[in-house]
Design a protein around this nucleic acid. Sequence first.
RNA 1: GGAGCUGUGGUGUAGAGGCCUAACAUGCCUGCCUGUCACGCAGGAGAUCGCGAGUUCGAAUCUCGUCAGCUCCGCCA
Length: 595
Amino acid sequence: MSESMHGLKRTHLAAELSTANVGENVVLMGWANTCRDHGGLIFIDLRDRTGLIQLVFNPEVAGEAFAKAEKVRGEFVVAAVGIVHKRSEATINPKLKTGEIEVYVSELRILNRAKTPPFYIEEDIDVDENIRLKYRYLDLRRPDMQKNIILRHKVTMAARDFLDKKGFLEIETPMMTKSTPEGARDYLVPSRVNPGKFYALPQSPQIFKQILMVAGMDKYFQIVRCFRDEDLRADRQPEFTQIDLEMSFIDEDDILGLMEEMTATTFKDAAGINVETPFPRLTYQEAMDRYGSDKPDLRFGLELKDFTDMVSKSDFKVFAAVAASGGQVKGINAKGCADFSRKEIDDLTQFVAIYGAKGLAYIVVTEEGLKSPILKFFKEEEIKEMLDRFEAQPGDLLFFVADKPPVVAAALGALRIELAKKKNLISLDEFRFVWVVDFPLVEYDEVERRWTAIHHPFTAPKEEDVEFMETEPGRVRARAYDIVLNGVELGGGSIRIHRRDIQEKMFQLLGMSREESQEKFGYMLEAFEYGTPPHGGLAFGLDRMIMLMAKKDTIRDVIPFPKTQSAADLMCQAPSEATPKQLQELHIRLNVKTK
RNA sequence: GGAGCUGUGGUGUAGAGGCCUAACAUGCCUGCCUGUCACGCAGGAGAUCGCGAGUUCGAAUCUCGUCAGCUCCGCCA
């Protein structure tokens, strides 16, 4: 049934044709998008990656082609030979890019038949993601997915071009490397040749790129896959891609400036989006204080206000006790939300409970006065002070959370975004970049009962804070920076430690013994002794960057073959069991509970 | 590890103890149709309601378990 394309060469892509081609004999190849059989006249919309073009079959002009066209169904692969005609005024289709022309087909070949696809090959389909992922090749045929993949290509091309012009070298680093403590769980690869030993897939090329600086490469970049065995989210996949880079003899301003330029260039070149530089900078402390997040969305206000100082001496015991025990009482003025129902407020109370908040106090501000269950605990001048700090006006709804600072930040930070969504304050056309700088170097992990690096163990402490590394680690600030776009952490980096003694001090602070740091990072420490330049770098999450450019809600829509939340590939059914022979060769015995 | 939402012909949905011999739209198949573009018209096929237990005279519908997908918390240097 299917025919050979022998003797035919494709001359044009579908949507490249225009009125300029009228009169030309063309050869087109692609998929039958839709077939409209009128009995005595057949129209087939031919689709390729550029778009659609209407083919016309007339039995009086080409009988054989017409007979074949009667048999064509959706997604059949066809080759058509014919003349481009201008459509008559009445038959122009303004919805189609090629709507002013059509091809009168003289010869049709059915190159391959197709089963009826399980969903429509068109934009904005509403299908279970299950099915899209199982038939990913069909999903990727859809115009919006093709757009995303093309955008991804444009972004990497623009970034490569930019970095090349700035003197960066693209250098590959190993995928089979050494497992490191700290950070995410590693994906392990068993070594057949070395029984009982394992490689780890890189969480990032961090150490290699630093060693490339030791090696005098000066400016490195790589568009590189990274692997982290942690639970998935809409913006997190176990394998993801970074635009990773590192430079020698630079400071924070050098790299931030260059990255602003690169971001503006790629957004402009790849997506036509104008980005204003320089980006504003917020310290970590400021971001947490004002937005309750280290990745604040700056497209809307609803900033957090602090009331800890004033409630500590109030009669409201719940607030006062929290303030007295080192906690915080903060709030958000939900502008214009005074009309929220009791149910809506209850729902929001449940919402903040997800983040550990034990309650959500509120005051409704109306023309007639205030309504609130907590009002009775406060004196008149206290209430006035609160309203002043909130800049409250009739129509506003004031929310309070009292708890330990991390809980207050998480709860109100999330509430802030939830309110903005509810009130439609978030513009899809705005791209608000911000640098978050001056992160703490380490934080105390209550579960592991030790200090852990906030960025990673190679991040340099601020010079003026080095003296506190042993005495007050929580006070040491890092020379780290995150680039944040619309509430999404787009990338992060730091100026690195380039001296062996400081690096050792850092490992020590993280609770690593001398033996352990020698075993895990000895080669790096040794390299640092052979003339290491001051250096620093940054890595962009490419998937997230494209997700935002494409205005999608998940990176799965910009990754050709993503995994589900349970880290499975529904198309190829990975992961799957290994054969006994494979396991034997790898010296692995399984210890799996059978269900 | 935990919380929530979803699962009914190929696809998207309706049905919420008996009205179900499961409805609608679309897709699919057959026939008709020379200007459609989500073509139209007529006819037809297609589902043991994710899976397994239980409650009940009776379960798509209620309960429990389980599987899958999604969102989130934890986790993610």
